[in-house]
Amino acid sequence: MERFELRRQDLSLDDDQQAVREGFGDFFTKQVPSSLVRDAEPLGFDADLWQRVVAMGGTSMGLPEEAGGDGATLVDLVLVAEELGKVVAPVPLVSHVVASRLLARAGGADELVAAAAEGERIVTLALQPVVGGNRQLVPDAAVARDVLAWSGEGLTLHTLAEPAAHVPNQGSTPLAWFDPAAGESALLATGPEAEQLFRTAVAEWKLLTAAALVGIAASALQLGVEFAKSRRTLGVAIGALQGVAFPLADVVTELSGARNLVLKAAWYATHEPDARPELPLAAFVQAAHAATEATWVSAHVQGGLGFTVEADISLFFLRAKGWSVLGGDPGQDRRQVAAALLAAV
């Protein structure tokens, strides 16, 4: 591995990227108060909000222009996903954007791609390869009739008459069991190229979910810091005490590293996809860790209050794990990160 490569290390956003961040940041902040998140429980889907996300261009922006999209890059998409995570918006945007991109790349029917771009048909992706007739839990499958899945036969589009039944879960996500034998199925693509498309989609899902987890961590941190500034003990704000301040300093450190690793991975995936294919997985591992730590520390800084359902930190704490676990055991990602190093040294 070339450790002393002369590459730029520039994380600054250009004007367009800044506009994406601010535009979606304002949108989600205004449209998604915590009351809306609570009202959408336990399913974790708000149909009105979904329509507004569609109107913002959230469902089409990541598709190529010839498929009715704006050709947004993964850098743009991670910026959107972080803003979504900051308010834990109850919309299946990450799965839908990733599955739509896969559908377009794999030659899915034009009408379906167009319906996905317009958010009329929600599509999602089975993140684990299908083995035999085994069912698996698929993110957002409780609101999506269309599930893309990879098996030994190839990449298949599974379509049900109605989305599968929701299974209540800790993160209040629209999780459902996906049964590969149910409904209609159409083989879209086969062979090594199709498998590569599937693996790329899984990496994209992990990258965008990592960005959303960074957003969760950022909001959790903010709640903890605000509490630490105003809550007093022994005559001082508790945030002045190192026992409180240091865990929060650790959180912002882990979170900043996670955010920048997500951006770096998105840059590579956009501009040099073959150079560092393991980076989205590394970013996912770190973001899942940062969100877990941030939400726990923030809840704990708030003491007993942080353990109550009433406190907004509860929304973030329950989703930090509830969203990250959908990607499977990070140990699998760590093994791939190590394998990439072993192949390079």
């Binding site: 590293g257 996670a258 920048n260 690793l261 590394a282 591992v285 140990g331 760590r334 093994r335 190093l341």
Partner: peptide, 29 residues
């Protein structure tokens, strides 16, 4: 050995994160 790879991968992630953690936070991380 998948256990070796899992544990080694965790360390590689730490170095990747260290390289992109900004300023003073990078110094600590």
């Amino acid at each position: 050995d998948p256990v070796f790879l899992d544990r080694l991968g965790a360390l590689v992630v730490e170095t990747e994160v260290s390289r992109v953690t900004p300023g003073l936070m990078g110094r600590v991380k």
